[in-house]
Design a binder for these strands. Structure first.
Length: 426
DNA sequence: TCTGGGGTCCTAGGACCC
DNA sequence: TCTGGGGTCCTAGGACCC
């Protein structure tokens, strides 16, 4: 255990993009800048991003789209299907801008990052936060909120408060308790549905009360993560800044179907497609997998039909990233769990036990054939990168699939394509 | 008619070993 | 005839995150 012998206080900022997906759509569509806007999840299923105006109307996060359709119509809410290629691209620009401030940065999600500000003088911290916010807005057009505090958990709290603040920036340094007294237990980072229930049952309904709970009680009633959260609320760092970018340990691809399907053939097509995409992803990261899981399920919401859900995990004899091999195993697994007579709603695959490709490159057990197929994979990846995903596929993936997801409100913006850039007439 | 998708970490409990 | 106990490793499932 290391002990930092420094009088300097830890300071960590959490920069969070406001209504990120909505903000991305607004970049290319200034007309909707003050209008209620909503972005839907894949398959146009749920609401996953809302503008302030949409929140005010009463559209809730995560709500199924069909339930708010009336509200949407009545209030002229602008609807978008999600466009992850666009959001990923804008995200990279935001993170790049952040890196112009510091290398000590942890990219936490597509729209959030922690930045270490321990080196900034106490009285200059808040102003520094404002500079960050202004530069991101100026360079990318994306509005953010900046919360700064002693620990990551407290900076999450600060960010929450900053979202409602005029300046969008807050340094949580003084009167912390007065803020924590008004901070609901379920809004704390790391406290989800189950923990909230447990805490509230025991009379702990604010961050302040949780902060002052006894160590023994937390350890007994929850787990190490629960205990860490409590310590962090007290200003004691337990969750470190992860500045090293690490490779993923598992990779899943799954989709709900636009239309429920019954046949094994259709399931095979979707599983094959997911497999090809997952394999391409791990090849991109120079990784190989030793285990593949296949799962299928019917809709858990359909009360009129019997529910069926099953999965199977297959360990591979030799780690690989070869699409053809993975597809072969996946289909084999699918056939074992498929049952006739159900209306399937979703299928997916998970590649796990991922390792570096180089570790296995000279494995003597690998047949010479592997080299040949590696060349093939490279050719496929190159073509798909150039002409778009699934330009080259295999016959088993099917064409014109009726099960493909709905995407009826796409803005069709592609930041890599000139055609989708806004047009100016003079 | 229509309810997302992709991750990580922790833990309990089983298998196995000596 | 007697049938322990402690340690490690692995995995499935759950909780959490955005």
């Amino acid at each position: 255990m290391s002990y930092t012998n420094s009088s300097k206080k830890n300071k960590v900022a959490l920069i969070d993009c406001n209504s990120f997906y909505v903000s991305c759509e607004r970049l290319f569509n200034p007309k909707i800048s003050n209008k209620p806007v909503v972005v839907l999840s894949n398959n146009d299923g749920c609401v996953i991003s809302r503008s302030i105006e949409a929140k005010k109307i009463g559209i809730k996060m995560g709500e199924p789209y069909f339930k708010v359709k009336e509200l949407v119509k009545k209030n002229n809410v602008h609807i978008f299907s999600s466009n992850y290629a666009l959001y990923g691209d804008i995200s990279r620009r935001v993170m790049k801008t952040l890196k112009s401030f510091s290398d000590k940065i942890e990219i936490y999600s597509i729209d959030e990052a922690f930045v270490d500000l321990s080196h900034i003088e106490e009285k200059k911290v808040e102003n520094y936060g404002k500079q960050i916010r202004n530069r991101i807005l100026k360079w990318t057009g994306i509005p953010t909120s900046v919360g700064i505090a002693n620990t990551k958990t407290l900076s999450k709290v600060a960010n929450h408060i900053a979202k409602k603040n005029k300046t969008g920036v807050i340094y949580l340094n003084e009167n912390i308790d007065s803020y924590l007294k008004n901070f609901h237990i379920s809004d704390i980072w790391g406290v989800g549905k189950q923990l909230s229930k447990l805490y509230i049952k025991n009379g702990i309904d604010t961050a302040y009360k949780l902060k002052n709970i006894s160590n023994t009680w937390v350890k007994k009633s929850t787990n190490v993560l629960g205990a860490k959260t409590v310590m962090e609320l007290r200003g004691i760092t337990c969750i470190n800044l992860e500045t090293q970018e690490t490779k993923r340990k598992s990779c899943c691809v799954s989709r709900s179907f636009g239309k429920k399907i019954q046949s094994l053939e259709k399931l095979q097509e979707s599983i094959t497609t997911h497999c090809l995409n997952a394999a391409e992803k791990i090849r991109n990261d120079k990784q190989i997998t030793r285990s593949i899981t296949i799962y299928i399920r019917t809709s858990p919401f359909d009360k009129n039909r019997k529910y069926y859900s099953n999965s199977i995990t297959i360990d591979l004899p030799v780690a690989t990233s070869n699409s053809l091999e993975l597809v072969k195993m996946a289909i084999k697994g699918l056939k074992k769990i498929y049952k006739y007579g159900y209306f399937y709603q979703k299928a997916g695959i998970i590649l796990s036990k991922l390792t570096e490709a180089s570790e296995n490159e000279f494995n003597l057990l690998t047949p010479i054939m592997e080299n040949k197929s590696q060349t093939l994979m490279k050719a496929i990846d190159f073509t798909n990168a150039k002409y778009g995903r699934n330009s080259i596929s295999i016959a088993q993936a099917g064409v014109n699939n009726s099960w493909r997801m709905r995407k009826e409100h796409s803005s069709k913006i592609d930041t890599a394509s000139f055609d989708s850039l806004p047009k100016i007439s003079i």
